[in-house]
Structures are given as C-alpha cells and as structure tokens.
Amino acid sequence: MNLCFNTDSLGYMSFEEMLDTAAELGFDSIEIACGNWSKAPHIDLDNMLENKTARNTFMEEIEKRGLTLATLNCSGNQLAPNEEGKEHQKVVEKTFQLAEKLNIKHIVMMSGLPGGSPTDVTPNWITSSWPPITTKILNWQWNEVFIPYWQTAVERAKSHGIEKIALENHGYQLVYNPGTLIRLRDAVGPMIGMNIDPGHLFWMGGDPIVAVRKLGAERIYHVHAKDARMERSLLESDGVLDTKTIDQFSQRTWNYVALGHGHSVQWWKEFFSVLSMIGYTGSVSLEMEDLTMSPLTGIKKSLNVLKEALPNDYE
C-alpha cells in the first residue's frame, strides 16, 4: 500500500514547506484538495488550469522530493439545491479538467446530497424510514436527482481521462456506507468506488473491517486513515447523533482523533491486514483532524501507528 498524506492537515504551511515535511516524515505520495469544503491551501485551481508553467512547477516541486501526486480531492456538495451547489459543481468540473492536464486518473470526492423536493433550497439527509414521507423523499432524491447526476458525471469524467472516482463515506451524503455505495455503483457503473474512511463508520456505529470485506478490493479506490473516539459518559446518555461543532470536543459524544487515540494499534493492524488480504494495494491517506493537539503532533503520532500497522517495510 502507498503511504499518502492529505495535505490539508498542514494547511497552515506553504506548499514548499508542506512538501519538505511530508518527505521528511516518510510519505510516498500526497492528496491535494482543490477547493469546495477545503480552502485549497496548496493549490490555485484557476491558475493551474490556465498556466502550463505553473503546472510544470507544481509537479516538479512534488517529484524532486521523491513524492508523487496520488489524487486530487474536490469534496463538497455539488448537489445542494442553491448557489453553493452550483459553485461546488464548478470546482468539480475544474478538478476534472486539471486531472486531465496533470495525467491524474483518480479523483476523491463526496457523493453530494440534494434537497428533499424540487422546491427545496437546502439539502435533506434522510436517516429514518418513518414517518412515511421520508421514504418518498429518499426515492425522489435517488431516482430523480442522484442517479441522473452521477450518470452524467461519470461520462464527463471519462471525457477527461479519469478512471476512478472514490466517494468518501461521510455523513450528510447520499453515499455514506457500503450499501449506498453499491447501490450507486450498480446504477452508474464501475468508475464509482469508495474512499473508505473508518472514522466516519465508527461514529455511525459500523465496523470498518466488516465494511472492507463487504466492499472487496474491486470497490475500494482510496482509504482515508482517520480515527474516531466515542466519548465515555457522554455517548451513553445522548447517543451518536451529535450536532455540536467539532471545536466543542470536550462536550461532544464522539470526536475525530489521531490514529491510536480512538482504536488501538492492534485494531489498525487488523484493518490493514484485511485490506491486504482482499487485495487492496492503493493509497492510504493520513487525514489528521484531532483538535486536542497540534496538527504536526497529531500527524507524527498517527504516522507511528500507520508505519507499525501497514503491511509495508517502514523503518
């Protein structure tokens, strides 16, 4: 497996300083966010599209440090029924265009979430089958908006030479677990696979190891290495549906944490062993979102877990 780094985790650093740090820490490749929910701290998407010299310099800076560019990320909600959705779609389309210019065949993004009716102006995430209106909303989202959107998006991606789109199993998306990924893939084809992020499945009550076995290597296109911890005494009283913002970590029922701070090294060893067992050989991209420590500290602690747990020979 390829030890990758989601560079937003060092978003406060310049592009060059981030690359130096990634190389010094021993990463093999990087994942660059192009915009939408990311501030895109390490890339100017419009300039990269317009300026061949900028593209050449960008790639040279990565390669001269012994790194490769594994993927571009444009995660957002391009299906939001408002101006934000339109703006996010523009970034998706520009990311596809840049992928072609950089010869990148692999995109990471989120599936998107429409409104609940043709007149909605905000997204609507349905998580229950009752009352009955929820099922009607969900069927409308999938059949009238979601599948048609992705049928078109797949064809657009193909026209730019893209071969794989990895959808992150994030909440507040129509694809948030293996079952919903498989449903979409069956409808629009094998360009769509999963970016499996254990941190999200943890808080939703799933088991990422079981999820990996269900998906199989043929449906897993990317892996985000991120942990989550269910917070004792808070979880038991209020459950996992917590709407407090992530900066209120001392009050939340669960939090994203550095690897090993939610689940042991032994758990991560089993996770990566099973990934290897089913034949996954792609990128494992470290994404650090633990607000209880500095980003660089969290990256180093997480990296220690990764280097011990991955079935690779890291010193």
Rank of each mutant, 00 (worst) to 15 (best):
N2T: 10
L3G: 08
T7H: 01
T7L: 13
Y12A: 10
D20G: 10
D20I: 09
T21V: 04
A23N: 02
I30G: 02
E31I: 02
W37A: 03
P41F: 01
P41V: 04
H42G: 03
L45D: 02
M48R: 02
M48G: 00
F58V: 05
K64C: 13
G66R: 06
T68P: 00
T68D: 11
S75A: 15
A80E: 07
P81A: 14
G85H: 07
Q89H: 10
V92A: 06
K94H: 10
L98K: 07
L102Y: 08
I107Q: 08
M110V: 15
S117D: 15
N124P: 00
S128C: 09
W130V: 14
T135I: 14
T135S: 11
K136T: 14
K136Q: 14
N139H: 11
E144H: 11
E144K: 15
V145G: 02
W150G: 12
V154I: 11
K158E: 14
N169H: 02
Q173N: 14
P178A: 01
G179C: 01
G179I: 07
T180H: 03
R183Y: 09
L184Q: 06
V188R: 12
N195G: 04
G199W: 02
F202C: 07
M204D: 09
G205A: 06
G206L: 08
D207S: 07
R213Q: 13
A217D: 06
E218M: 01
A225L: 05
D227W: 04
E236S: 13
G239I: 12
G239D: 10
G239P: 04
G239Q: 08
T243Y: 12
T245S: 14
T253P: 01
W254L: 07
N255A: 12
A258G: 13
G260Q: 06
G262L: 09
V284G: 10
V284M: 05
D290N: 11
D290S: 10
T297D: 12
G298C: 02
L306G: 05
K307V: 03
L310P: 07
P311Q: 04
N312C: 15
